[in-house]
Amino acid sequence: MSAGERYAFAAYAVVLATVLVYLVIIALKVSRLERDLGELAERAHERRAAEERKERVPVG
């Protein structure tokens, strides 16, 4: 492989690698959001269950 070919492939590889790193960062963000949403859904579910229990308590 000539020096020109090496430099050309290096330039294309830099762009590809950057796009891949960006994709990995986005994938990590999505998985964090998924985890956060799961945690919030669980918290909302617990709160609803607690409110339902409170409503069932006989008054008087």
């Binding site: 000539s2 020109g4 070919e5 430099y7 050309a8």
Partner: peptide
């Protein structure tokens, strides 16, 4: 003039 390395143009200028 530049040979194979000129092909960097096709990624460098669009970027």
């Amino acid at each position: 003039d530049q040979g194979f390395s000129q092909r960097i143009f096709y990624i460098h200028v669009p970027v």
